[in-house]
Simulated assay, not measured.
Amino acid sequence: MNDNKLKTAIFTLAIGDENPMYRAALLSFEKYAEKVGADLIVSKELHYPITITNPRHTASPAWTEKLYIKELLKKYDRILYVDADIIITPDADNIFDVYNDLDTIYLFNEGQLLERQPVIDKISAIMGEIKDWPKVNGRPVYYNLGCMLISRQCPLFDIASLADLQTLCNHIKYYEQTYVNYLIQRDQLKHQSISAQFNRMDVLGSQDYKQAHFIHYAGRGYTNSSLKREVRFVNDFCDMFSGRIDDDVLEKIKQDGWNLFINKAHKRYKLPKPIISALAKTFVTI
């Protein structure tokens, strides 16, 4: 349990059509929230409308919903934001205890592994250059927004604005993530990278990934094709939570994950679903 007497919440987004991956993720968040004594808050509708027209990169209007953290911090002392393509594993440590400085915003520095200078250059050209952007392993610090721990004392979401996001969304890759990184550096907010154990991404490889506390299935999600991501996700979830969640619930999620994969493959390859299913059962390995 979170025994520091601070009021904490876990926040995520589940907007649009119901996805078995999201259902599984939410179940893992529910279990974790109970374990650490936090409330679970799920946004299922958009509060921050944005117009995305002919974007240069993939861009979702749902990404602005992270601005809702400002409202949540009026009620809660600390907010843990997690993407809905993350599994919080059953024995995960209490992140609120591990990272307990209230002035610091905590995220995973993916920039130490991936080159993010080009997108930093693009946002700097629009919003102004920042001198002395810090580097790790010779690359600029650039945080992944899939897992973010923030407390009321950090002013990030007092600074962030929907107007800025509207300016950026059609031009900048990972527009809201890049914007948050820019604000952290521009306004010199206190920040620290969390361990990859709390945002385990497949850029780190697949060896022992299931041993992490928070497993992030962004992109291909530990498969060789994004088509298979949901199947990998729900299969891993069902393995990890076997005996902790009712078998019929797990079986339904697993079957729905497989059906979603078949539907996506059908749309891509235009073959009849029975043929897609037969081929998948024979040749697809997850």
Results as ranks from 00 to 15, higher is better:
Lys228Pro: 00
Lys228Glu: 03
Lys228Gln: 10
Lys228Ile: 02
Lys228Asp: 04
Arg229Gly: 00
Arg229Thr: 07
Val231Ala: 15
Val231Glu: 13
Val231Asp: 07
Val231Gly: 11
Val231Gln: 11
Arg232Met: 13
Arg232Phe: 00
Arg232His: 04
Arg232Ala: 06
Phe233Leu: 08
Phe233Ile: 07
Phe233Trp: 08
Phe233Asn: 04
Phe233Tyr: 10
Val234Gln: 06
Val234Thr: 15
Val234Glu: 07
Asp236Gln: 00
Asp236Ile: 01
Phe237Tyr: 09
Phe237Asp: 03
Phe237Leu: 08
Phe237Thr: 10
Phe237Val: 06
Cys238Asn: 12
Cys238Asp: 06
Cys238Ile: 05
Asp239Ser: 11
Asp239Trp: 14
Met240Ser: 05
Met240Val: 09
Phe241Trp: 14
Phe241Ala: 14
Phe241Asn: 13
Ser242Ala: 11
Ser242Gln: 14
Ser242Trp: 11
Ser242Val: 09
Ser242Lys: 14
Gly243Cys: 00
Gly243Phe: 01
Gly243Ser: 00
Ile245Val: 15
Asp246Ser: 12
Asp246Pro: 01
Asp246Tyr: 05
Asp246Arg: 05
Asp246Ala: 13
Asp247Val: 12
Asp247Arg: 07
Asp248Tyr: 06
Asp248Gly: 02
Val249Asn: 09
Val249Ile: 15
Val249Ala: 05
Val249Cys: 08
Leu250Gln: 14
Glu251Ile: 08
Glu251Val: 11
Glu251Lys: 15
Glu251His: 10
Lys252Ala: 15
Lys252Arg: 15
Ile253Gln: 03
Lys254Arg: 15
Lys254Asn: 11
Gln255Ala: 14
Gln255Glu: 15
Asp256Lys: 07
Gly257Thr: 04
Trp258Phe: 14
Trp258Ile: 14
Asn259Gln: 15
Asn259Val: 12
Asn259His: 06
Asn259Tyr: 07
Leu260Pro: 00
Leu260Cys: 08
Leu260Gln: 10
Leu260Ile: 09
Phe261Ser: 05
Phe261Arg: 02
Ile262Gln: 01
Ile262His: 03
Asn263Arg: 06
Asn263Gly: 06
Asn263Lys: 12
Lys264Ser: 15
Lys264Phe: 12
Lys264Gly: 10
Ala265Gly: 02
Ala265Asp: 05
His266Arg: 05
His266Trp: 04
His266Leu: 03
His266Cys: 10
His266Asp: 02
Lys267Gly: 14
Lys267Met: 14
Lys267Tyr: 10
Arg268Ser: 09
Arg268Asp: 02
Tyr269Asn: 11
Lys270Asn: 12
Lys270Leu: 11
Lys270His: 12
Leu271Cys: 04
Leu271His: 10
Leu271Gly: 01
Leu271Ala: 05
Pro272Ile: 09
Pro272Gly: 12
Lys273Asp: 10
Lys273Asn: 11
Lys273Val: 05
Pro274Val: 13
Pro274Met: 13
Pro274Gln: 13
Pro274Trp: 10
Ile275Lys: 10
Ile276Met: 07
Ile276Cys: 03
Ile276Asn: 01
Ile276Gly: 00
Ile276Asp: 00
Ser277Met: 04
Ser277Phe: 00
Ser277Thr: 13
Ser277Ala: 12
Ala278His: 06
Ala278Cys: 03
Ala278Thr: 06
Ala278Gln: 12
Leu279Ser: 05
Ala280Tyr: 02
Ala280Gly: 02
Ala280Pro: 00
Lys281Met: 07
Lys281Asn: 11
Lys281Ile: 02
Thr282Cys: 11
Thr282Ile: 11
Thr282His: 02
Thr282Ser: 04
Thr282Gly: 07
Phe283Ser: 09
Phe283Ile: 08
Phe283Val: 10
